[in-house]
Nucleic acid binder design. Structure first.
Lengths: 330, 330
DNA sequence: TGAAAACTTTGGAGCGCTCCATAAGTCGCT
DNA sequence: AGCGACTTATGGAGCGCTCCAAAGTTTTCA
């Protein structure tokens, strides 16, 4: 009882071939004669041989696996991203391991170190680099999402927030609105969306009306912003709020004034948050194309795994307009 | 960019020590001078070194991990068992991996092979061996639970079903009952519980009344059995049903006759099924001591890992009586 | 019929660690 | 000073694979 685990050598001996031949059979190499193949297979069977993953990993130079680091499993965003990543890496025959930030290892628990210990071929980082251990990113990796800090040595995929602002504004313009307000707030993302708004307005020779600059980007800010916009322009028929929560606040203001959406005011948000869903506000909004972000990140990573020398890329994915019931033509 | 991963040799060189010293630091060996230890730690830091799990596994002769094979994660039973296993192996510093039967590997997906590929030191099998690949069990392993087939070469932990039957019956006797019926059914488990019933009755010189022999062990059988028992003995004041579902059927019969439990009849089941809970039947019952089964299985496995030569054991764990509201003294 | 071409098979090196036996350095004590 | 007894540090072997260059074997075709 309790014999030592059989190795590839044991199999080779039983099958009467070399260990290399066994290895070839194990990875299903086509250049093995049927006779030997079945001899090896039989030996494997009779010995109850299970190839050592550890040895395979150590000897092979590719593990055919990647790691994905996310903030938290409860972040919806990651589901779409992961689906996109899967699409690419499943097809390429890779295993995908996911780790959130709060995994406790023994001592210093950096998910990237953990992945590297497992010999992953590359890592997709879908979280803030600042929440990870300080390090040189000298391995195949892709950073995903708008981040406070960028990493010059690895690829980066983001969504085009300026285009997001443009799409939202353009949607309102296309519906015939001209008195279009925008509620913005502090931060780089809001600034980009604001820029998109300004671009679209300028393109059609419309006067921009912007409130909330430098303020918070939450529901109360949306409420206050809406009020301010009406003080600025009482002919206002449409508003683009920098995110869905602000839009929710704006909606609350409208309701408090007996105004209806979209009858009196068309409202558009950004982010396709749960609050925007058809079961809640039924808000027209702009969404990140999570799946596309995922597939693009995956493609970049795969390219770099296959050729580490390719130039670092910074890729911007187009967001998409999601039309719901909060906007209508004038 | 994309340098090769640093190895223990790189760390050794930077720290100005031998690779062995680095290894000692990695496993926190006390016999390393503070000066060298901190030099190594610094080198690890500066190189972003992450030790290869694969190499560690391959070189070390212990992985300090075990695998647990279960039927399905939805089986409540396993939760208690696993808790018991954890208690022992956590303390011993082992990792515990769990796999249910329906994990799809690539091709032949035997969870035990998968575990062995990962170099687990041992396996706890909490499922029917017949549902696994046919194999020699020539590695440290423990089988848990009553099984159709036993495996002579590995340890086995079960619950004592005869004692279960005895405990149930004895409980009724202790409450002062003497006209005590038993509803049994087909199968080895039912037979053991029946034997326990007979033992207790004989011990106190009481006449056994058994129905349902060879029949099913479900709710309808409980209903019919109860009826039959009353035909056998109209002075019946207590009944032991071979399991909780049969007890539920018995209860249904009582209610259909306007009888109350425990006022008119004391009823005891076996298994502590969900149906027996205080929110349902509030049934007095006998439960397997899952945690104890788990800790015992774990202890056996740990002993065998540490010394593969110890004799194969077959361990029987005492079940426990759970008093609820379905029994009372006469 | 002989040599090139194609198909199969093989031994050796090396992946990055751990473990072990041994070496080197320290210390206290005679 | 000299020597045993510790305390620390080291090189080498080996874990079980994959990969590669090279060797053997068979087939093909001039």
């Amino acid at each position: 009882m309790t014999k030592k685990r059989p190795t590839i050598y044991d199999v080779a001996q039983v099958a009467g071939v070399s260990k290399s031949l066994v290895s070839l059979v194990l990875k299903n190499d086509p250049g093995v004669s049927d006779a030997r193949r079945s001899a090896v297979l039989e030996a494997i069977q009779s010995l109850n041989y299970a190839p050592s993953q550890a040895a395979k990993l150590l000897a092979g130079n590719r593990s055919k696996s990647i790691g994905v680091v996310i903030d938290s499993y409860s972040n919806l965003w990651f589901v779409g991203i992961l689906a996109g990543i899967r699409q690419v890496f499943d097809a390429a025959g890779y295993q995908i391991a996911v780790s959130d930030l709060h995994r406790v290892g023994d001592g210093s628990n950096d998910p990237i170190d953990a992945f590297r210990a497992l010999h992953v071929d590359g890592v997709i980082i879908a979280t803030e680099p600042d929440s990870l251990k300080e390090r040189d990113y000298d391995f195949p990796g892709v950073l995903v999402g708008d981040r406070r800090r960028e990493i010059s040595t690895i690829d980066h995929v983001t969504s085009d927030d300026t285009l997001g602002g443009y799409l939202a504004t353009r949607h309102l313009i296309d519906l015939g609105h001209s008195h279009i307000g925008h509620i913005t707030g502090e931060g780089g993302t809001a600034a980009k969306r604001r820029q998109g708004y300004e671009q679209a307005m300028a393109e059609f020779g419309l006067a921009p009306r912007i409130v909330g600059q430098g303020g918070t980007t939450d529901e109360p800010a949306g409420f206050a912003g809406m009020q301010e916009l009406f003080e600025l322009d009482d002919k206002l028929t449409a508003v683009f709020a920098a995110n869905d929560y602000m839009a929710a606040g704006s909606f609350a203001y409208l309701r408090s004034k007996g105004l209806e959406m979209p009858r009196d005011v068309s409202l558009i948000g950004h982010d396709n948050s749960p609050a925007a869903s058809e079961f809640n506000l039924n808000l027209t909004t702009v969404a990140y194309d999570d799946a596309a972000i995922g597939t693009n990140a995956a493609r970049l990573l795969l390219a770099r795994i296959e050729n580490p020398a390719v130039a670092v890329e910074r890729l911007v994915v187009d967001p998409i307009l999601i039309e719901r019931g909060s906007t209508r033509s004038i």
